[in-house]
Design a protein around this nucleic acid. Structure first.
Ligand code: NAD
Ligand code: NAD
Lengths: 214, 214
DNA sequence: ACGCGATTGTTAATCCTATCACAATCGCAC
DNA sequence: GTGCGATTGTGATAGGATTAACAATCGCGT
């Protein structure tokens, strides 16, 4: 342990944690890397190697304690605390996100909403008031904001990103269909179903309409 | 060219195409791998190598014709035609997707909606009628369905996936927070903002509240 | 208390991906 | 028309990531 951790490994941990949670809910107490691998479509060696970067969590001859491993992975990822998020852009998408229960239930709390449309500023969504972009610095100082969610049109995305970074936000979840540019200490995750589809079609196209091979 | 194409390369092509589209809209006619790389945060060598798998698209000393390269990449990806999609699960998310203009404008057309809730079956969303799951096979035979969108609760996800695969759908866009299992000829893309956030927190946690380094 | 089947943690080998570096060649200036 | 700065396409190289393989060791049954 305590080497440098490859980013691919970190990206797989939430998948492991999620599967362990579902196993836990089904009453499974212990699981081997072989079975977990089958469930997730990865090799057991990969699971063991990934976990070995962080410590020893299993028992030889037995496997992993589901509840314990899940808790450990969540701790490693920093999911044993609350993360505070602000949404910028309260249009159709922004509003949907603001009231999506899937974030809060995983410890991601939306604590502020911003927009630059005077018609929207001052309105409430759930129990939050939509604020002006002018208030961004002030609100960021009062409420701690860990993560900014970008939900504005593409041509406004970079500008909004710059403003969020300027007030100290170091994590961004970007829904706009653009590649945003940030200083090296800021982390970005993109959510773009269209881009996902656009790489899938390459393979759909190359296996003909009725070609089960490959 | 005509080697086996690494999947990572295919996944980058839509990003290139998207950036080229935005450059085109801004009136840029020609761009070098150096400048495109700067824009996207990748090395120019990577862009050139990626493209070299598919042919020669640039001019030495000059760079790439923006409009031409975009068209070529889109052709490679199979984006020079329409793709037909069916949404399964017309709840909050499914309804939002059904009326999201970002799919249609990129050639991804939603052609059918399915749900298993009698209260929803028969209602209309936009110009589509919500159909019963019993009609899935029939509709798939009539309308061609290239891609299935999974927008049902997690515990129903695998079941819905199996039904879609059974009627011949070979591409899936999965919004449910589960790892789905499919035969090898079926392609899957997951859209899960929570999983994205959960790997980001690892890095947010490890660079302290006021640590600009790394 | 001992042996055995199971399964981990880890080292070594393989495979894959990204970068480097440069010959080939383009357009333009003069 | 020649020379020069710019930029591509690619073979070689370095750097990562995945898989294979096995010694270490656990729990259980007797
Ligand atoms: N990734 C996805 O799954 C997904 C899905 C839908 C939409 N989108 C994208 O999300 C973005 C928003 O989509 P939408 O349908 O909600 O659009 P929308 O037009 O309904 O909403 C955009 C909102 O942003 C606000 N806004 C505009 N410029 C702003 C600025 N500079 N500062 C603050 N607020 C600003 C507008 O007032 C508006 O309320 C778009 O980029 C769209 O492409 C992504
Ligand atoms: N990835 C994302 O960005 C994102 C965002 C929001 C929700 N989600 C996920 O999408 C899914 C749907 O979320 P939602 O908020 O729309 O839930 P919802 O309960 O509002 O809608 C689910 C719909 O699926 C239908 N359904 C249930 N079982 C079905 C079955 N077996 N066959 C056909 N239809 C069935 C229900 O009748 C309902 O209409 C959930 O898994 C949720 O976690 C993902």
């Amino acid at each position: 342990m305590s080497e440098r951790i490859p980013e691919v490994v970190v990206r797989r941990l939430p998948i492991y944690a999620r599967a362990l949670g579902q196993l836990e809910a089904r009453g499974v107490a212990v699981i081997s890397s072989l079975d977990l691998g089958r469930l997730l479509g990865v090799t057991p060696a990969q699971i063991r190697k990934d976990l070995s970067y962080f410590g020893e969590f299993g028992k030889q001859g037995t496997g992993y304690d589901v509840a314990h491993l899940k808790r450990e992975i969540r701790r490693i990822l920093g999911l044993d605390r609350e993360w505070r998020m602000a949404i910028v852009g309260v249009g159709r998408l922004g509003r949907a996100i603001a009231s999506y229960p899937g974030f809060a239930s995983e410890g991601f709390r939306v604590v502020a909403l911003f927009d630059n449309d005077p018609a929207k500023i001052g309105t409430t969504i759930g129990d939050l008031v939509v604020r002006s972009m002018d208030e961004l610095a002030k609100v960021a100082a009062d409420e701690r904001i860990d993560i900014g969610i970008v939900a504005v049109p593409a041509d406004q995305g970079q500008e909004v990103v710059d403003k969020l970074v300027a007030v100290g936000v170091t994590g961004l979840l970007n829904y706009a269909p653009i590649t945003i540019s940030v200083p090296p200490h800021v982390r970005v995750r993109d959510v773009d179903p269209v881009v996902a589809l656009q790489s899938m079609t390459y393979y759909l196209k190359h296996s003909g309409p009725d070609d089960p091979a490959s």
